[in-house]
Nucleic acid binder design. Structure first.
Lengths: 144, 144
DNA sequence: CAAATAAAAGACTTTTTTATCTTTTATTAA
DNA sequence: TTAATAAAAGATAAAAAAGTCTTTTATTTG
């Protein structure tokens, strides 16, 4: 469904958001630990998220990453996915046809269209705030 | 969604089924052409499909691959996907948690469960015959 | 039976994805 | 203002996925 990179990115964002809810800025080490990801690789991912203005980064002592509460209410999971994996999951044909459309449909065109629409709806309507609260409340998890 | 290998496999099966509907056995060259896949790689994929008894293979002159009409009415897309990609798409957590469950849910557990169920239903209920007819009738395509 | 045909098997190669390690840059606080 | 801290940047490395090439095995038909 998502690349490993994207999975880590989503989890990292949710974790950062949940910590930002209690005014805590988190470092790469902390994130990697919280989401069980390789530390250096997580650093690379954070660079992308930061460049895409999905997280705020602060260098130096007491630095780290954060997402202001106002921002996390605006940012959708779809933005994170687009930053990491592009919009393949939102657009492209399930069987890999380059020009799959109503005029040139693959054998599963309409069925996949429905599934893609559901995925898109989920990712476009769910904000980081929406998922961060469940984590902060101990109702959901990012590990195991 | 699916690996490239799996996409080719699904398309190959649909093509073979559609040709079997008119009593035509097809060779690797023919398949690769019909689904726009690399020929040698397609050969490798056919080995897997053949070992998994999804297609029948015949060596020698006038050999090739076929799927008897009775079989294509039984075989579901899910079998093809399982043979190539395993059952990750049917089972595994969207965020990559190894033990994602009601007791240890990822933040998108229930939402993904619904999407996974839809995908599973589609793949488990659609037979090769179901999709082969549309192709044979010129209503759907495997190229472009 | 021999030649031709076509898939199976095996050994590689290339590309992409995932991951690591080192150096640089920015920030802070003593 | 310097030492410590933490992210950014850059250069590699390892693993997995995608793809190729060569040889072998099975089958068929003249």
């Amino acid at each position: 469904m998502f690349s490993k990179t994207c999975e880590y990115a989503i989890k990292a964002c949710i974790y950062i958001a949940s910590q930002s809810l209690v005014q805590k800025r988190v470092g790469i080490k902390d994130i990697a630990q919280a989401i069980e990801s390789p530390e250096a690789f997580t650093g690379k991912i954070m660079q992308v998220l930061s460049k895409n203005h999905i997280v705020d980064s602060v260098k130096g002592p007491h630095g780290g990453f954060e997402i202001p509460e106002s921002a996390m209410k605006e940012k959708r999971l779809a933005e994170v996915v687009r930053a990491m994996d592009g919009d393949d999951i939102f657009k492209s044909c399930g069987l890999g046809l380059k020009e799959c459309s109503g005029a040139n449909p693959c054998p599963l065109h309409s069925q996949f269209a429905k599934i893609r629409a559901d995925i898109t709806k989920l990712l476009e309507t769910t904000s980081l705030y929406d998922v961060a609260t469940g984590l902060a409340d101990g109702l959901t998890f990012l590990k195991r």
